[in-house]
Design a protein around this nucleic acid. Sequence first.
RNA 1: GCUGCCGUAGCUCAGGGGUAGAGCACGUCCUUGGUAAGGACGGGGUCGUAGGUUCAAUUCCUAUCGGCAGCACCA
Length: 666
Amino acid sequence: MPQPASKQITITLPDGSTRAMAEGSSALDLANSISKGLASAAIAARIDGEVKDLMLPLHNGAKVEILKRNAPEALEIIRHDTAHVMAEAVQALYPGTQVTIGPAIENGFYYDFARAEPFTPDDLPKIEAKMREIVAADRPFVREVWERNKAIEHFEKIGEKYKAEIIRDLPGTATITVYRQGNWMDLCRGPHLPSTGKIGTAFKLTKVSGAYWRGDAKNAPLQRIYGTAWRDEKELKAYLTMIEEAEKRDHRKLGREMELFHLQDDAAGSVFWHPKGWKLYRLLEDYIRARLEQNGYVEVNTPQLVGKSLFQASGHWEMFGDKMFTVQLDENQEFGIKPMNCPCHVQIFNQGIKSYRDLPIRMAEFGSCHRNETSGSLHGIMRVRAFTQDDAHIFCREDQIMEESLRYCQLQMRVYEDLGFPPEQVIVKLALRPDIRGGTDATWDRAEKGLRDAMNKAGLAFEELPFEGAFYGPKIEFHLKDAIGRTWQCGTLQLDFVLPERLDAHYVGEDGAKHRPVMLHRALLGTLERFIGILIEHYAGRLPLWLAPVQAVVADITNDVDDYAVEVHKALADAGLRVEIDTRAEKINYKIREHSLKKVPLMLVVGKKEATSKTVALRRLGGEDQQMMTLAEVVTKLREEAESPLEKEKEAKELVIALATRWQKG
RNA sequence: GCUGCCGUAGCUCAGGGGUAGAGCACGUCCUUGGUAAGGACGGGGUCGUAGGUUCAAUUCCUAUCGGCAGCACCA
């Protein structure tokens, strides 16, 4: 067909070369002009740095990269498209259901629907089957630009009031785009795949849940359906297998299997620590205590039951009273069980007169706290109603904020490193001023800058969260991931300008006048409970030797060598190792299996051979072979291996001193 | 707190209007076996709790407590 002579546009490809195309050509045309294969593999285009639809007409001078299925951006598009297809399927199967939003998320997507009747897990296979029909029909995604008022009117008319509301809330300058797939259409910014068939078959609906319109519990409840979607079946299967494996690391399951703790209905949200779990708890507490002592903290202990008046003065009664457990002593006396330690720490600070020379005061407490958390938020030992914070409050002058924050960040990262979380596994966030807040803007400016500078100086990569700070000050949050990738806030540093004011804390400055100290609330682990939960999942129960409640089991092969097993056990116990002995009349296979399932790091197997030669066979958890060594050797070796990071640090220091001394003498 | 699902032996789970079953675990006995489950026999449950329906409820209904997933919350 003869084309009318049209204008040409010039497109730049990623390799820097240019290509002339007819005006109005799309990225798909460009792909076609390069190769048929590229055109059929193309799923979207990066135009001047932004991911766009393939069908969009290109402008002169555009830099265009054709994106294929293996592009990192592809997954997000596939997931988003799968959400659209799910929405179509849902509306086809359940007429009257309204659509709201349906974004791609990590590993998949969801779509929130407004429907009186909730979805149940039984609905998922039906919806999924319908989705596969829509994908098989391979309908093209067609982008349309609509006039704002027409769009609002249209969505109102078809009863999609949430979509109409979304458009109304868009800035007046926004381009309103609608994507069609066959007869179904959705308000959407895009980009999308060329057609539904490009989604492929590697998707699966995973769960239904409630949600709220715009994420606010005051708004209308919605029904959310989650799914996962991948490039191909292999990726999908790998993901599902990964989830299955991760579930085996669940701290609730391992906690029971390893005899660490249990939970029961009578004390929902509180932990029953068993001997082994309590050992782990104390090891962790001892480690933190030692680190605090090194870092200039003093430790205190404050009351559990505190009169209402103090919490009224601190402001907690008003702000958090609904989450506090209270005790009515008589008509006139109401006590609260402390939900946090700060008001009490201020009381200690307020005893006597403090000079500017006394600051900073770093006041630590392994503070046992109780909060009446909502039933839906409880989770194993990670979110409980009774917990112990490795809490501390640093009372300092405003000019010390930066220095103290830096010291905290450095200590925090040191501690996480020691416990097996290198910096790349720690998610750091800086929560900035919320709308409702205490203090002046100038103070907030200085506070936020102080924290930001400290974090930068400590070399932390962090994300900023606007409006997420506490009403009394900005905060740094350190999050760690659990087995299935959910993140939990553990360590935190929170600046507080309000509480010292409310509880009238002051110090005498150089000028002889009274001044307000600044309070830094901070925790390294967060709570012992949550951290132990994270630790168990992080290590899949295989705790490092220095933290293992039982470090080794001596197991004999025949009861003929019971005496020798006792001797080995005693030698190790005398060396300070946490060791158990297993002389039951069971086969060695049986014993190894059992102790392996309980994640005991080391097994010392002794039989007739070992008894005669005074040796042991050392077997490591999960290992397939064993090392033969003499009893004396194994004691020395294990004692060294079982050293905590602190002991290792101390030894290294001593070595340096010894060498320096020798050098000076020499 | 909200939505959905769930609650049966220590654990994992099956069952189902006529008062219960498996595997593992546990106990006893036999076995003394060289690196992830040796064998035999045996004990064990008010079927989360409270009401209701029914001749009869662990099973059906309601409430309640607790758990799981997600949402909301998280000083």
